[in-house]
Design a protein around this nucleic acid. Sequence first.
DNA 1: CATGAAATTGATCGGTGTTCAATTATTATT
DNA 2: AATAATAATTGAACACCGATCAATTTCATG
Lengths: 201, 201
Amino acid sequence: MGRRSDHTRSELRELMLEEGHRQLAEVGLAHFSARDVAKRIGYSVGTLYNVFGSYDELMLAINARTLSLWLTHLRTRLAESEDDDRIATLVRGYFEFAAEHRQTWVAIYEYNLSDGRPAPDWYQAKVAELMGVVAAEIAAALPRAAPDHVASLARSLVATVHGHCVFSLYRTFNLLGETQPVEAALARVGEALAAARALGS
Amino acid sequence: MGRRSDHTRSELRELMLEEGHRQLAEVGLAHFSARDVAKRIGYSVGTLYNVFGSYDELMLAINARTLSLWLTHLRTRLAESEDDDRIATLVRGYFEFAAEHRQTWVAIYEYNLSDGRPAPDWYQAKVAELMGVVAAEIAAALPRAAPDHVASLARSLVATVHGHCVFSLYRTFNLLGETQPVEAALARVGEALAAARALGS
DNA sequence: CATGAAATTGATCGGTGTTCAATTATTATT
DNA sequence: AATAATAATTGAACACCGATCAATTTCATG
């Protein structure tokens, strides 16, 4: 009983993406199932494969959606923040989003494409957009720095914050003696910026 | 045709662990299969489950083995290094090991126990041992620092290096314009130590 | 040699991603 | 309006996976 005109192709895609994202947030990557996503919106597995082509493409689309949500989260925090330390706002925003969207955030990093292929350009562009937001704030914080240096420092600082965030969320590494990962990350970022300023002036 | 006396229980465990580690290194976590491990050493699935009890315990044991290898790698590098910057040696050792043992190293972080249970104490102790090696070098580098401060800084610096290492190994995040992650990590660690020294003196 | 305990097996279960012939629904053509 | 062509949808089938457990085989003990 096909319902060819119930939804257009793009409506169907949107339906699956929405349900897929909800599903991933609920059960986590380990228990995520494309079959279930299809079932929950009342279609069969075959239709999902007709729309997305493969599990990889579905997961990529879901992760891209998470990246978009993350981007708007960061931009909103920047816009509404009273704090004039915009980089600290970014760091806190990084942790906030990861904590609030644990499962979908983790999936961004834990899902690797089959046989280790790199992500397609459109996806990498989304990641670059996120990095761009950071780079812009770092450029503002270091007016005298060269663009190359800013980009490279942005990557390094994101890596720094990411490392702290990962260690705070993964229970496997929860060494006893709790730390304050956000404060530690802020300290490391602050030191790096101070060092860059000292060198650049 | 059971071969009850071919191997003792611990020999069997060692066999499975060895083959499991080799298998994981070859095919990666995504294609790793307990069935295959059993088959390759000439036993059936049931026997593997008789020895390890569950997939979780097998993976935990394999990851623990990777941690041990990592530990000896770091200690060896420290012992044989001509460089008097022992912390730089540690940082380079971190990257070296991750690059040389990609699949098994990634599994340490990507394998999460079922339903999110925390790792058992004996496993967390292994992780703590690794952290201890780092903490010892940081304590030596900051003679005037309080032990609490050293431990907390050690965690933060490991997180920093880890973040850089992850970004350098995950192809999904390979933003164009390659960086030198090792150098960046060394710079961040150096700045943090300099800041700690400036504060502590 | 007999017996009972321990080790080993592999069929079985419910699940996964993926494929694809068959069916159904829509559109185009006559 | 009837028919042909096209597109969408289905779900059974396949080859895997982790996990279970009754049946079998091995071995030490009496």
